[in-house]
Design a protein around this nucleic acid. Structure first.
Length: 767
RNA sequence: GCGCGCUUAGCUCAGUGGUAGAGCGGCUGCCUUACACGCAGUUGGUCGGAGGUUCAAAUCCUUCAGCGCGCACCA
């Protein structure tokens, strides 16, 4: 038995053990197994992404659940994989090619050649995050790694599209969508982030047609869209303006146009708020969702003045044409001033939708897109509100329910190249929805599908659907899903609906929502702020176990996490503490893997520790059912540090140092028994160090991964000292008893020896 | 505007009816024969404000304030 080093050195252990585990296929899931199944599908990270602290948190939690399930004797499948991440990946590749001077725009390469470049990029960078997860100790079944653009997976996506099309849940329509002028694609409502914007509210006058002195004053935040106005709306109940309904007004821009072409109707519409602004609304059906609806109600023409890249079109007039939206705003205001029509401008704060990826204001835009009317909505809603599919923390059920109650059709087409091509074919006026091309003279729809339209199938498409595979039989529905609340609509809700629609079953039984990791100042971690530590650096510095344990100990359920490197250091310190407790045991002679304290005379301290261990296990069982991961870490920390090291080991020294002590064998047996249990309890959180100690101490010959299987019942003891046991419920009185009985050996010796170290004291600088 | 959450020691947070807790930090002393990634001590809070229920409230109720988040077609 090699002697343990004085300090735990993760770097000498981790890679070696991980290779062993992989070589021995300890993580392989066997669908034929007789054991009860336990499964998790990984939230697939972006294929070109790199590991962040958020991933560390999320995947450590999954690893804990998976390893715990293995120790409880379950057949575990933790299914890994990556996501093609349409917009994100395409943007990165396009930007890189531009930076290298190879292209100015992806059109320079053409669709086919560009896609070749993306695949090359994926091959080169695609494996990085997977390798990083391995460094973390993730016990995924890597033989089943999936990618959302695998041929089999793509076939699932296409099949689902075709199916929903024929069910008439997918349709094509010319509608107002969120348009990102940078990515030049439509977005779903979920990909738009509302941001508060400090702007100005401009009041300008429009002349009522045929009445030289009659003006209406309109308040707007977007004067650049005036050339696209096709009506002026007032509330029919508004006594100020009702009489004007049916008349016309003269749109001021573009001024060079003859007045007849700028004459627009004044209409009455309930949507207009009497209280807001002046009570008069300009209606731009082509560039505002609300105005679009008004336009439909009144059969107004749509006049597009902004193009797909966010530049003003010629229709906007000669002084605006070609300008960017933002610049056009100032220019339009200048024009109004020159025309003497600008009444006033006042500071104004409003909410503006931003593109999640490109971080620019989205432009509401009228275009031909594909939409999905969600399937299986009722079941999906009640399964959560009825508590059959459980969310942790529970409050997210309300958020989910509210969204499900107000479902809007999902815009699923994207004007991108990287993604699943829409399986729809055209020939003249004919349209055909099927996977294979109907013939050479048919042209395929050029759009691809929203990335989430593929990931919503993840729980079953990764297990071989639509075939009835043994994997699906054994592992679907999955047991737990661990993810962030930020994708509750994007992903979680949609997976539930897809699960019911295609498997007739919920996709997972429990969802655990993690918190967001923030820095010490409470800011989100981000690359641009430079406050985002590299997990691999942390692993190098503190070990994977230290990182995992340190982070988990401060990750409260349902709340954001204030990250501080100090806490990872704590994790490392804890690993070292455990290491040394085992090292000390090792120095007393070989351990007995079958140690049974009940068969030996013991001290009261042994009994107290054994009782504490029972309490700990019961407590952990309870906490696991509640997904209270930080409390589990806290309980383990307290047991190892305070109960085992500070109390038990210190008192055990009396036995260890005295070979003649009658309770020596009992103390050794207690030590072995407790360590054997504690290492297994700690293993889900700290897989590397626990395996290393397990094998080195000889507590088991095989891996600790599959060590328990529920085979170790608690040892029931008759109290060696009833009086002591009665008092033992009060840990404080025990602490006093321990001190009296001879604890704190180190401290006493330290004090006793101070006199002998006068030379050292003297050598210090004087007071 | 609607909804949700948070506010407890200097910091980060546990604690859902019964005499205020942990870790870190601070301070004092220790290289001590498992561990200085450590040990022994010690400091520290009228539990955001106000009101109420109760024998008893950090905990339940009402209300106010501050912060954060989600949803929303007031331009």
């Amino acid at each position: 038995m090699p002697e343990l080093a004085p300090a735990y050195e993760p770097s000498t252990v981790e890679d070696r053990l991980y290779r062993q585990w992989t070589d021995r296929q300890d993580y392989r899931a066997n669908p034929q197994s007789a054991k009860p199944g336990y499964s998790i599908v990984i939230p697939p990270p972006n294929v070109t992404g790199i590991l962040t602290l958020g991933h560390v948190l999320n995947n450590t939690l999954q690893d804990i659940l998976a390893r715990r399930a293995r120790l409880l004797g379950q057949e575990v499948l933790w299914l890994p994989g990556t996501d093609h991440a349409g917009i994100a990946t395409q943007t990165v590749v396009e930007r890189t090619l531009k930076k290298e001077g190879k292209i100015k725009h992806r059109d320079d390469l053409g669709r086919e050649e560009f896609l070749k470049q993306v695949w090359q990029w994926k091959e080169k960078h695609g494996g990085i995050i997977i390798q990083q997860l391995k460094k973390l100790g993730a016990s995924c079944d890597w033989s089943r790694e999936r990618f959302t653009m695998d041929p089999a997976y793509s076939a699932c996506v296409q099949q689902v599209f075709v199916d929903l099309f024929h069910k008439k849940l997918i349709y094509r329509g010319r509608r107002m969508v969120n348009w990102c002028p940078v990515s030049r694609t439509a977005l779903s409502d979920e990909e738009v982030i509302m941001k508060e914007q400090k702007g100005l509210l401009y009041h300008f006058r429009v002349q009522v047609s045929g009445q030289k002195d009659r003006f209406l004053v309109i308040a707007t935040t977007r004067p650049e869209t005036i050339p696209g106005d096709t009506a002026i709306a007032v509330n029919p109940k508004d006594p100020r303006y009702a009489s004007l309904i049916g008349q016309c007004a003269i749109r001021p821009l573009p001024p060079e146009l003859p007045e007849a072409q700028r004459r627009i109707p004044i209409i009455g519409d309930e949507h207009v708020d009497l209280e807001f602004g002046t009570g008069v609304l300009k209606v731009t059906p082509a560039h505002d969702p609300a105005d679009f609806l008004i336009g439909q109600r009144h059969q107004l023409p749509s006049l597009e003045v902004i193009d797909e890249t966010g530049l003003m079109k010629p229709e906007a007039g000669k002084s605006l044409a070609g300008l960017d939206r933002a610049k056009a705003r100032t220019a339009a205001v200048e024009q109004l001033k020159e025309l003497g029509l600008l009444e006033k401008e006042e500071p104004y704060v409003n909410q503006v939708g931003y593109s999640e990826r490109a971080d620019v204001p989205v432009e509401p835009r009228l275009s031909e897109q594909w939409f999905l009317r969600y399937p299986s909505t009722e079941t999906s809603r009640t399964i959560v509100s009825g508590g059959k599919l459980r969310f942790f923390p529970e409050r997210w059920t309300k958020v989910y329910d509210h969204w499900m109650e107000n479902l809007q059709d999902w815009c699923i087409s994207r004007q991108l190249w990287w993604g699943h091509r829409i399986p729809v074919w055209y020939r003249g006026d004919e349209i055909c929805c099927q996977i294979e091309s109907p013939g050479a003279d048919w042209r395929q729809d050029s759009d691809v599908l929203d990335t989430w339209f593929s990931s919503w199938l993840w729980p079953f498409a990764t297990m071989g659907w639509p075939e009835k595979t043994p994997e699906l039989k054994k592992f679907y529905p999955t047991t737990d899903l661990v993810t962030g609340p930020d994708i509750i609509f994007f992903w979680v809700a949609r997976m539930i609906m897809a699960g019911f629609e295609y498997m007739g079953e919920l996709p997972f039984r429990n969802v655990y929502f993690t918190g967001l990791i923030r820095d010490a100042k409470g800011r989100k971690l981000s690359k641009s702020l430079g406050n985002s530590p590299d997990p691999l650096d942390l692993i190098a510095k503190y070990g994977a176990d230290g990182l995992r344990f340190g982070l988990l100990r401060i990750a409260p359920q349902g709340a954001d996490i204030r990250y501080d490197e100090k806490q990872i250091e704590e994790g490392r310190n804890f690993a070292n503490k455990l290491w040394n407790a085992c090292r000390f045991r090792q120095q007393q002679g070989p351990s007995d893997p079958k140690a049974n304290p009940a068969q030996h005379p013991r001290t009261p301290f042994c009994d107290f520790l054994l009782e504490k261990l029972d309490t700990l296990e019961r407590e952990l069982d309870r906490l696991y059912t509640q997904y209270e991961f930080s409390q589990i870490a806290q309980a383990l920390y307290g047991f190892v540090w305070d109960e085992f090291c500070a109390r038990f080991i210190e008192t055990a020294k009396a036995d260890f140092l005295n070979p003649a002590s009658p309770t020596r064998t009992g103390t050794l047996a207690t030590s072995d028994f407790v360590l054997s249990r504690v290492l297994r309890l700690l293993h889900p959180y700290m897989p590397f160090i626990t395996e290393e100690l397990w094998i080195t101490l000889g507590l088991g010959t095989e891996t600790i991964i599959l060590a328990d299987a529920g085979q170790t019942p608690a040892v029931r003891l008759r109290r060696t000292d009833p009086k002591f046991a009665e008092g033992s419920h009060d840990s404080r009185s025990l602490g006093r008893a321990l001190s009296a009985a001879g604890g704190s050996a180190r401290s006493r010796q330290g004090k006793n020896s101070t006199g002998k170290r006068d030379h050292r004291l003297r050598s210090r600088p004087g007071p």
